[in-house]
Nucleic acid binder design. Sequence first.
DNA 1: AATTGTTTACTTTCGA
DNA 2: TCGAAAGTAAACAATT
Length: 311
Amino acid sequence: MPRPGKNSYSDQKPPYSYISLTAMAIQNSTEKMLPLSDIYKFIMDRFPYYRENTQRWQNSLRHNLSFNDCFIKIPRRPDQPGKGSFWALHPDCGDMFENGSFLRRRKRFKLLRAEHMACKSSPMMHYFHHQGKLSGGHHEHPGPAAAVGRLPHFQSYGSINCGQSGGFKHPFAIENIIGRDYKGVMTSGLPITSVMHHLGYPVPAQLSSVVNSMWPHVGMLSDSMSAIPVSSEYAPFGVSMKGLYHHASGQTLPAVPVPIKPTPSMGPMPGLSGLPSGPSQLCSSSSMLEKNGSDPLEGKGNAIHPALLLS
DNA sequence: AATTGTTTACTTTCGA
DNA sequence: TCGAAAGTAAACAATT
């Protein structure tokens, strides 16, 4: 409902959690990683609601970045001066929004304790980020995944996600957007297009467009903000996504926000048996473990093995 | 000094 | 109704 003196619907709170907003920003970046300030900018550019009370929501967003293992921090290289690190999505945080809701995840993505430990003791992030120099990218910051293909670390890292039948299930993977039918089109367990891209695989424009249009307010890669008119309303997902479905698959698919797929169990958990023993995991931003040595899951009454949360 | 990042504690919201 | 996810506030450290 338009309010007098206000911009139509655009100042309403978008139907996205901070996690999905942040993921949205990161996914929409060419390098699939952004500094904090750019995440702010992305959100404010697209969602007028967040042009106010910046202190409040930005604090919340920072809290989310640190608290949630689905976000990984990528240090700047010395030749990339600036404030803060880059933030990227942990590629193994798949299916966070598999219920079709961008407000609430089915399960919080949590890294294994071992992953936390390994991350803290490994300079790998620095290393592979440094390797990104070799990617030949002309962008100001080489992508985190740019070096993945070159690094044994990352091959095993990828194997966490892709090596098994369950496969890589990025929350913003095509399957999670348009349903499992797409599995037949994509190679089983293929990572998100961004990772494909950074690994040097050609990403079909079709897929890319799907990924980039999964949120009504997200434009195509590298699109200028101005090219994407800030929607005057937060249209129900069904509207834009329906068209998206048609465009993407050419077949009729259910419109969201109906749960995309009711698959509570995805079979064997990718991480359970396939976790590499080496320091091949990415670092989570959370440093709870190194600080007090306690399991972040302890004391929360969670009897489930952490690995089971990686669904 | 401002920004960025981490952590704790608490409240609110939502789904089962 | 209850538990978990999400949101908020705030203290504090580190960095630029």
